[in-house]
Structures are given as C-alpha cells and as structure tokens.
C-alpha cells in the first residue's frame, strides 16, 4: 500500500476547500431551488420531515466548528510529536542496538565457553578410554553430546537479533514519519517531501521480520517440496 502522505500545503488546501464547500451549502439553503433539492430525498426517507432543514444547517455548522477545533489541536500537538521523536524513539533505538550487540557478545561468549568445555571433556574422555574405564568414558561422551546440543540452542541469538533488527528498523521509520508529520504542520517549512508508505523501507534488508522459533508447518511445507 504505497499511499502518499500529502504535504502540509496539500492538507491545508484540502481543508480549506472543504470548509468553503460547507459554507456554500449553508448559503444555498436560502434559495428555494436548492431547498426543494435537499427536501425531496429527505421527505422520501421520512426521517426528519421537511421541518428539519434547519437542524441540517445547525449540524453542518457544528461540523465546521469541530473541524476547525481539530485543526487547531493538531497544530498544538506538533510540539509533543517532536518531543517524542527526539527523546523516546532515538533512545529506544539505541537501547535495541545495545541489546543486539549484547546478545551477540553473550552468544559468542557462550560458544567460546562451550568450545573450551568440550575440549576439556574430550580430554577426559580420552583419558578414560586409555584407562579402559568404559563407564566414565560413556559418561563423558554423553556430556560432550549434551554440550554440542547446547551449542545448537545458541541459534536463538541469530533469531532474536533479526527480530531486534526489525524492531529497530520500525522505530527508525516511525521516527522519520513523525519528523515528516511535524513538518506538515510547520506553516513555513519548505523542505518537506513525500515519503514512501512501506514499512520499513530501509535497505538493504538483512533481517527477517518473521523470524520466530516455531515453524514446524513451514519446515513441513519445505519438506513436501524437496522430498524426504
């Protein structure tokens, strides 16, 4: 969905046009011609009766007031948006990046530790074999297998880092959008351009947004394709 976010001029122009149309409609109510035009469908519906033409006028006036008030409020909230962008999002992105590198570091540490542990166990295994102690040998073999097993679970780091990468990209994108949005309401900001609507748009993409741990169905699908 490549929707275009309009520039602030577009928005203001559209709002202005809309308001003018409302004004015109209200003015037209005075002429008999348009009264008949509006009254006919209303009479058919029988909802309000012809007497409610006045209430239509007041409804439109109220809508006009609401739209005006809303525009006013959006202009005011520009400050809040800017604050969120500056303080929270940037900070969050930094935190995510820190977590990612921390897990990377931890994973690397775990793997190092496992490597050393496996080496030690392998040594003990060798000794047990030399001393013909089959029971101990079997135990060390089992332990070594267990450690190898642990090693495969460190894959979680790759999966989490891809998820974090995705989260960081989404935040980065949100940041850009907010920046743009606040620009729209900046009456004299000249450098605002339209942005693409795809989320997230940063390239190159080296993370998988759908990286999760349980994907039995998908593996089964792949297996049915490639055969067993």
């Amino acid at each position: 969905m490549a929707t275009q976010v309009q520039t602030h001029e577009d928005v203001l122009h559209a709002t202005d046009t809309a308001l003018r149309l409302v004004n015109q409609a209200l003015g037209d109510l005075g002429t008999a011609d348009s009264l008949a035009k509006i009254a006919a469908p209303m009479a058919e519906k029988g909802a309000h009766g012809s007497g409610s033409l006045l209430s239509l006028a007041s409804t439109l006036l109220r809508a006009y007031a609401e739209v005006a008030a809303l525009l006013d409020r959006i202009k005011q909230s520009r400050g809040i948006i800017q604050e969120a962008q500056d303080a929270h999002l940037t900070q969050m992105n930094q935190k995510l990046n820190a977590v990612t590198s921390a897990t990377e570091h931890a994973a690397s540490g775990i793997l190092d530790g496992l490597d050393r542990a496996i080496a030690v166990v392998a040594e003990l295994e060798q000794e047990a074999a030399e001393s013909q102690d089959m029971v101990r040998h079997a135990r060390y073999t089992a332990l070594r297998e267990e450690l190898y097993g642990v090693m495969t679970y460190v894959q979680f780091q790759d999966i989490t880092s891809q998820q974090l990468g995705y989260a960081a990209a989404v935040i980065g994108d949100t940041e850009k959008r907010l920046e743009q949005l606040s620009g729209i309401f900046q009456p004299f900001a000249a450098d605002v351009t339209a942005v693409s609507g795809t989320v997230p748009h940063s390239a190159p993409k080296h993370f998988d947004p759908n990286a999760v741990a349980d994907k039995t169905d998908s593996q089964a699908f792949a297996d049915s394709l490639f055969g067993r």
Binding site: Q155, I159, A213, S218, Q219, F226
Partner: peptide, 11 residues
C-alpha cells in the same frame, strides 16, 4: 536451491 532448513535447526 536444493533444500531448505529453517532456523533453529539441530545437527
């Protein structure tokens, strides 16, 4: 590709 393995995998 000749085959496809989803992470996490086991040896």
């Amino acid at each position: 590709v000749n085959n496809y393995v989803l992470k996490p995998f086991t040896p």
